[in-house]
């Protein structure tokens, strides 16, 4: 048996050991990996980075509230066939001309092993995961219209993300490996920043991280800023060339940090933060 390559993160994606183990387990046993975590901690990016690191093509299936499980397999375009039948087209005699392949089909019939990302599975109807059980377990499905069975040539590495909006059924969970991306601690965060912006000034990162973790500490925030928000914010700070000492200023006029719009995404949070910061200032 040839040992598959191991995933150990990439230059731009810092992993933790538990995530590596989870990805490698999913890859070795060819089972789906379910990734949960706060928004903005890199769940979707993980699939892209795994695909890149293992040099496998990536097939992305973004799930919406109206997505049906069957759409991932195939759709039979009966209306097109009916219309062609009326017009007397020759291809109407072969039903397979009207089978539109879905993402799963695409992944199953690929000539190399692929990474299949099923993004935000919790957005779909509550029965959605149940409808995919058999397909993900056996990696095959039956096409009723053409009486053929589509079987995976190479079992794809399936990465599923969820934002916890709906709970997933037990039977589905039993078949997956699970990983919860924790919010990175400071040391990891520094590495992540360094991986994304190698040329950033050290003192800027230090002050920005101080502020960032302070903001996350504010109780009652509706949406705590996460990694992706921090990276956006740092980029803005760099573009505007804001010096580090502005971030730690004790200037009473500067209650909210510059360019806070990248960190706090709704006006209640901004108000809350202003109040907390104001009280903290007064207490000093």
């Amino acid at each position: 048996m040839t040992k598959p390559a191991k995933f150990t993160g990439t230059d731009s994606y810092i992993t933790t050991r538990d995530l590596e183990i989870a990805v490698n387990a999913a890859m070795t046993l060819e089972r789906p990996l379910l990734v949960k975590g706060e928004p903005g901690t890199g769940k979707t990016v993980l699939a892209r980075e795994v695909a890149q690191a293992l040099k496998m093509p990536l097939i992305e299936w973004h799930v919406k509230s109206t997505t049906k499980a069957a759409q991932g397999l195939y759709e039979y375009d009966a209306v097109a066939r009916l219309r062609d039948g009326q017009l007397g087209e020759a291809k109407v005699h072969d039903i397979s001309n009207y089978i539109v392949r879905g993402k799963l089909w695409e992944a199953f019939t690929s000539d190399t092993q692929v990474v299949l990302l099923i993004d935000e599975i919790d957005k779909a109807d509550i029965e959605f995961p149940n409808d995919l059980l058999q397909e993900l377990d056996r990696m095959e499905f039956f096409v009723y219209e053409t009486k053929e069975t589509v079987k995976a040539k190479f079992r794809p590495l399936v990465i599923i993300t969820s934002n916890n909006e709906k709970e997933l059924p037990d039977a589905f969970l039993r078949r997956c490996f699970f990983h919860f991306i924790r919010f990175p601690e400071r040391a990891t965060m520094e590495k992540i920043v360094a991986a994304h912006y190698p040329n950033i000034k050290h003192d800027l990162v230090r002050e920005a991280l101080n502020l960032f973790f302070d903001i996350r500490e504010v109780p009652g925030l509706k949406k705590k800023p996460a990694t992706s928000e921090l990276l956006d914010w740092l980029k803005l700070l760099m573009v505007d060339d804001i010096p580090a000492d502005i971030l730690k200023s004790n200037d009473p006029k500067m209650v909210v940090p510059p360019l806070y719009g990248a960190l706090l995404k709704n006006e209640q949070d901004v108000h809350l933060f202003e109040r907390v910061a104001f009280l903290a200032r007064r207490g000093q």
């Binding site: 538990d18 183990i21 989870a22 387990a25 999913a26 990996l33 379910l34 949960k36 037990d170 969970l173 039993r174 997956c176 490996f177 699970f178 990983h179 919860f180």
Partner: peptide, 8 residues
């Protein structure tokens, strides 16, 4: 943990 626990 990845195998046996499916809920954080």
């Amino acid at each position: 943990r990845a195998t046996l626990v499916k809920d954080e």
